[in-house]
Design a protein around this nucleic acid. Structure first.
Length: 669
DNA sequence: TGCGCCGGCGCC
DNA sequence: AAAGGGCGCCGGCGCA
């Protein structure tokens, strides 16, 4: 087996161009002095041979980027790249470091300070950091220099390498050397780390990283007319808000917010005893809270108004310019393939469901969006986790029998039978619907360690269930209040409500007895505020240093991510290299935890249908393998649309053929 | 002026 | 005894 590091130098990355033209490559083998600069032709030749050689491994720093460059340089590289990833022959020192740090409980943390690592354009483990960690010297100066060659290789494109300045020729060789040295030192460190530093999971993460990078390269388009309408509306509403609150001094004349003034107003509205935020290093006593809920509960008309009007600020500052850019060039979302739970993170996973931001995204001409998400994924992974850890799960039994687990838990709360309650839920009887809604909050949150106080608060915030009504003591609500902690923030809730919540806790644990045992185990493992290591089942990825709630959360969140990544890989592979698949030629555009969004080729209605069904099938199969004891309960159906929207639904004609969903307004017109 | 921290809030 | 988790982005503030 031979191991080479491989790095490319390219033209600059630009909006809409994440795989810019290749200029040169650099490689290094284990032997000192083996590093070489390769001109464009040599780089192609090296890559062509190495990517196809069954005993050759390639190592990179953010290798997915270089793979994207090579794939764009020559489409004939695409298939061998997929094959090499399948074979586990490609490596990335950044992914490896994340895996090792997760095992240590130090993901994204600087061990010397305990603080979060800076994000370097989305990369939490840039090569400079790894060189510092493993080789003990500082190359960050190279990065800061705006005249550095690393940003200027386009100038050298076409110039014979013999005529390059020394520094331009040396820099790529150095990086190749560093990368491979880091790689081997990671091997040694991993051997000394619990669970071998999780490195056996590297290949899965590499595959996911490449699939995600291809999605980034392809990007998303937006509709110019829609964006113009959106901008007009958002800016008008924003202007109205600003005018309204400027008079009270909440906004200054220059349009910025006066947070101190706002805090003073909140303090006054709460008669000197405002809700405060959690203590921090800088503010050991906490600060005056100014969140929406605090404002809405202030009893002050103006502050309540402000609480209701929060959203357009966010739309304007976060999304407007981005979606506008998408009208002329693809928006390239950025993905981080591996965060501490094995989930994916991205700057494009938080598109608001309301407010019309999603709706400006439109599939390219000749394509249609296809969204497939898993139904209730984390309930299934939670149940699978229980089976693996305890040997049983009532929730798994219910899900596999096709029962609605929210109605089932609600029946437990009401002391009713499932068969009795289900028709009432279907008939939309208010009490039945309210209790099912309540059960949903518990099913969703309690498995992660949610407390009674938080439950009351969440139910109240959603304005769906009156706990005092449940207590048949409506008179006390709002009178006798106790402070509870909700996501590290103190909140005041009614004492009677908390008592009800405790009863519901017990009933919920009766419905899912495996949860009682899981909680008991998590408690005993963190007795006295301790921390413990947790295994993400299936992937056998160890997450170190977990507190109580993380012990409960990590396994089912991580297991879901594992299955989604497997599905994403298989879907992407058919899209890019399997000419016989109906998915061939279609493109993944987003992954949002339990959902894969693609642009499917839409020129042929039958193939579009087949592609959508194939994608959903691959997703179901991947998750069935990931959660084998929940196989009968895995649900994933395709929905087609021209634009993105939370309202997009599966639409079929009478023969079952998939149709493209149309927004309601369009149908009316 | 730049940077880090913090609160707040969007999503799953 | 207590405790949903995971993210990323933005603006404001305070410090250097």
């Amino acid at each position: 087996m031979s191991v080479w590091s491989f790095d490319t130098e390219t033209w600059l990355i630009q909006p809409g161009l994440l795989a810019p033209p290749l200029v040169c490559g650099s490689i290094a083998a284990a032997a000192p002095g083996s590093e070489r600069l390769l001109d464009k032709a040599q780089a192609r030749q090296f890559f062509r041979e190495a990517i196809a050689a069954p005993d050759t491994h390639l190592v990179g720093a953010n290798l997915a980027y270089d793979l994207g460059v090579m794939a764009a340089d020559d489409p004939r590289f695409v298939a061998p790249i997929f094959a090499a990833l399948e074979a586990g022959r490609l490596h990335c020192v950044q992914i490896r470091e994340a895996l090792i740090d997760i095992a240590r409980g130090l993901y994204g943390v600087d061990p010397s300070t305990g603080r979060k690592l800076d994000d370097d354009e989305g990369a939490r483990y840039p090569l400079a950091l790894l060189v510092q960690r493993y080789l003990g010297f500082d190359i960050s100066e190279d990065k800061k220099n705006p005249k550095a060659w690393r940003l200027r290789y386009a100038e050298l494109d076409g110039v014979p390498v013999e005529r390059w300045p020394t520094e331009a020729a040396e820099y790529p060789k150095r990086d190749a050397r560093y990368t491979l040295d880091v790689f081997f030192r990671q091997e040694a460190v991993a051997r000394e780390t619990s669970n071998d530093g999780n490195l056996h999971a590297e290949a899965d993460q590499m595959r996911a990283a490449f699939a995600l990078h291809l999605a980034s390269i392809w990007g998303l388009r937006t509709n110019g007319d829609s964006v113009a309408v959106l901008r007009e509306r958002v800016e008008r509403e924003w202007g109205e808000n600003r005018a309204k609150f400027q008079a009270a001094g909440i906004y200054r004349a220059d349009g910025t917010k006066d947070s101190k003034r706002l805090a003073a107003l909140v303090t006054a509205a709460y008669d000197g005893q405002p809700p405060i935020t959690a203590p921090s290093d800088r503010f050991p006593e906490g600060q005056v809270a100014t969140d929406r809920d605090t404002l809405l509960g202030s009893g002050d008309a103006l502050l309540e108004d402000l609480g209701k009007s929060g959203r357009v600020d966010k739309y304007k500052s976060t999304y407007l310019d981005v979606v506008e850019a998408g009208t002329s060039l693809p928006i390239n979302p950025r993905f981080n393939v591996l965060v501490s739970t094995t989930r994916v993170s991205s700057d494009y996973q938080q598109l608001p469901q309301k407010g019309g931001i999603r709706e400006v995204h439109e599939a390219r001409p000749g394509f249609v969006y296809c969204s497939v998400d898993y139904g209730g994924l984390e309930l299934r992974t939670m149940a699978q986790r229980a089976i693996w850890e305890l040997g049983f799960s009532k929730m798994a039994e219910a899900l596999n029998s096709g029962l609605d687990v929210h109605t089932l838990a609600a029946a437990e709360f009401l002391g009713a039978s499932y068969d009795e309650l289900l028709p009432k839920v279907k008939a939309k009887e208010p009490l039945a619907v309210a209790f099912r809604q309540l059960a949903k909050i518990l099913n969703f949150g309690k498995g992660g360690g949610m407390t009674g106080g938080s439950l009351v608060y969440n139910a109240r915030a959603k304005d769906r269930v009156s706990f005092c009504l449940l207590a048949k003591r409506a008179d006390v609500c709002g009178v006798e209040r106790v402070v509870v902690t909700v996501q590290r923030k103190p909140k005041r809730v009614c004492r009677a409500c908390v008592e009800v919540a405790k009863e519901l806790d017990t009933k919920w644990l009766n419905a899912w007895p495996e949860q009682r045992e899981l909680q008991h185990r998590a408690k005993s493992r963190t007795y006295g505020g301790g921390f413990a290591d947790v295994m993400i089942p299936g992937a056998n990825i160890l997450r170190g240093g977990c507190g109580y709630t993380q012990i409960l959360n990590t396994p089912f969140q991580g297991l879901g991510a594992v299955g989604c990544k497997l599905a994403m890989w298989r879907v992407s592979r058919e899209m890019y290299v399997d000419r016989r698949s109906p998915l061939y030629g279609s493109r993944l555009v987003l992954m949002v935890h339990d959902e894969l969004i693609s642009e499917l080729l839409a020129d042929d209605a039958q193939r579009m249908h087949d592609a959508a069904e194939r994608k959903a099938y691959l997703m179901r199969e991947a998750m069935k393998e990931t959660t084998p004891d929940l196989a009968p309960a895995i649900e994933a159906e395709p929905a087609l649309s021209r634009i993105m929207s939370k309202d997009v639904a599966t639409v079929r004609d009478s023969s079952g053929q998939l149709l493209v969903w149309e927004p309601p307004t369009k149908r009316a017109a």
